[in-house]
Amino acid sequence: MNPEERAALGDIGRKGLWENNTALVQLLGMCPLLAVSTSFVNAVSLSLATVLVMALSGGVVAALRTLIPHEIRIPVFILIIAALVTCLDLAFNAWLHELYLVLGIFIPLIVTNCIVLARVEAFAAKNSPLAATWDGAAMGLGLLWVLALLGSARELIGSGTLFSGIQMILPGAHPLQLLGEDYRGLLIAILPPGAFILLGLLIATRNAWMAHVAKVRAAAPHAPTDVASA
C-alpha cells in the first residue's frame, strides 16, 4: 500500500471516529440507538451490530457498484442492507438469544437507520471495497464509542452499575456495582429524557473542546503541527 492510500484510509478513520462522528456531529440514525443505550452492554451490542452491517454493506456495495444500474441503486442498496441485517438478526437469535430478546425490534430496525444508507450512497457507491468497508466500520466505530460512553453514563447514574447483562455475552462475567447497594438510582437517566440530556451534554463537551482547540491554534500560529510539516 502506498503512502497516499494509507493517508486516505487514515483520513477516513479520523472522519468516522471524530470529525464527522455520526452521533456527535451528524446526529444521524439516533432513534434506535438512544432507545437501547440504557446500559453499556445494550449500547455496545447494538453498536457492534451496526458496525458489522455498515462495514459489510459498504464492502458489498462497493464490490458490486459497477453492476448496479444508477437509476435503481436505492432499491438495490436497501435490498443488500436488509439481507445483511436479516442474516445478523437470525444469527443473534440463534447464538446470542438472551441479548436478542433484550435488543428485540432494534436489530431489524438497523435497516432503517439512515446512517447506513447514507454511507452506502455517499461513499461506498464511489469507492473501492477496501475503503468502503473501512469507511463503514469507522463510521460505526465512531457511533460505538459515543454510545458506549452514553450507555455507561446512563447505567451508572440510573442504577449505579456498570456492565449489567455482561453475562449474556461473556458467560461467567459479572456486572460491577459501582455506587453501592444503597444507591437508589436516578431513574430519569435510564428513561428517554436521560438519553437526550446526556447526549446534549456530550455534544456540548465536544463543541467546547473544539472551540478550545481552535482558540489555542489561533493564539499560537507557530504550533507544533507547523513545525512538524516544515
Partner: peptide
C-alpha cells in the same frame, strides 16, 4: 419532573 420521573 426530574424528581417525579426518577423517584415516583
Amino acid at each position: 419532573c426530574v424528581l417525579i420521573v426518577s423517584f415516583p
